[in-house]
Nucleic acid binder design. Structure first.
Lengths: 224, 224
DNA sequence: GCGGCAGGTGTACGGCGTACACCCGCTGTC
DNA sequence: GACAGCGGGTGTACGCCGTACACCTGCCGC
């Protein structure tokens, strides 16, 4: 009589969200079609009725993340609107640390990403930047548009403090790095945690770019 | 009598260089320990006497590339010296398109990369930037230090020009993107090739950053 | 002459993405 | 009600991957 509720039927959306959750939990390297199918209580090949292949799965996962980014603020000048949106994108990426590597591996943007880029371009254009300037600015922002940090290296896995001998060798071999790291270590002693203030660093470089852009706009930058 | 010259013995260096060559030729996705061994006329496991695992192979491949970057110019102001060096790094990356993805996947810098970063930091410091400013600037440059472009998407594989109907849909859905792409298309008609001038875009954003940095230096930027 | 060892080999395991044939249960049509 | 069609889940299998582990071999110092 009562129909047995076997399992919520698979949908593309459920597959993508499960993939995001799994990647969050176990890292992107551990995300396989097989493991993903397992968390959905389904045989691996079932996924292929909803995504063409793993590449498309990854594309879709990024689409989910883009959907988490705040919509653009309605009012205010272009600079703060863009700034807010990018900082929102960054928050999303912080919650999904695997995302930057996936972004880096994409070759063709999905419609969702295209729509996001279009809306971001619109913020520059309505802010008064010329078509040419906007074009170059979008290149300059690159994947920072998506909150991407482009740090040279992710957070090192909190290595134990090196002993004095190693530290001396480091200081000899890499004097300038040592100069900075010891400075940071001192600052941190008076603040918290270990390492840099990533949020500050992100905003620093973001503002460096935005300030530069606003300067070009004010000076009426034109190509050549 | 005459010793048979069987094969140049494997060395770590030979392995790494062969890996770089193979990645150049077939792409990083097709680079496997098995294929690499094959090009060296050797059984896969032989490689493991020279690199601990594939991660270390990738690290070593980047070290090879860092070795191809021009040494810093001896004289001149910090800005042009840094600019030259980064543009040299970019040339290296252009010849090894797989490099950016490998950079993105590294977690811990090798001594070679550390030395490169140290020397880059030195250029800022001797140029008159404070320790703090240099620190933040290094974050702001991120992997651009290595010539990394951080474009949102690599060159799309030169899709055929969309037919009129598709183009109309595009224009409706992504008006701002369309505005820029048609502008670029017109410019290109009078120049060459298809797509953007990547070199220009790279230098544009590099200069945006360097100009901003020089501005901070001149104004005696300090934290907080 | 011989022990040790660096470096190359062979075999094997578990995991991966996914092609392909299948099958089951629902839906629309008559 | 019968039944064809089909969308979605299944099962099996293939060829690839990284690499653990045991083994062999030829050279070097003693």
């Amino acid at each position: 009589m009562t129909q047995q509720v076997r399992r919520a039927p698979l949908t593309r959306d459920r597959v993508l969200r499960a993939a995001v959750t799994l990647a969050d939990a176990t890292g992107i390297d551990a995300l396989s079609m097989r493991k993903l199918a397992q968390t959905l209580g389904v045989v691996p090949m079932a996924l292929y009725k909803h995504v063409a292949n793993k590449e498309e799965l990854l594309d879709g996962m990024l689409d989910v993340l883009v959907g988490e980014i705040d919509p653009p603020a309605a009012a205010g000048d272009w600079r703060t609107a863009v700034r807010q949106r990018i900082l929102s994108a960054r928050q999303v990426l912080l919650h999904h640390p695997w995302a930057s590597r996936v972004i880096e591996s994409r070759t063709v943007p999905t419609p969702v990403v295209l729509a996001y880029m279009d809306s971001m371009i619109g913020m520059f254009r309505t802010g008064g930047l010329s078509v040419d300037l906007t074009h170059h600015v979008m290149h300059a922002m690159g994947s920072r548009i998506l909150g991407f940090s482009q740090e040279l290296f992710g957070a090192p896995p909190s290595a134990p403090p090196p002993d004095a001998e190693i530290a001396r060798q480091m200081a000899g071999r890499y004097p300038y790095i040592t100069e900075i790291t010891t400075r940071v270590a001192h600052d941190e002693a008076s603040v918290v945690g270990s390492g840099c203030d990533d949020q500050f660093e992100f905003e620093f470089s973001l503002d460096l770019l935005l300030d530069g852009i606003e300067g070009l706009r004010l000076r009426g930058w034109t190509p050549r």
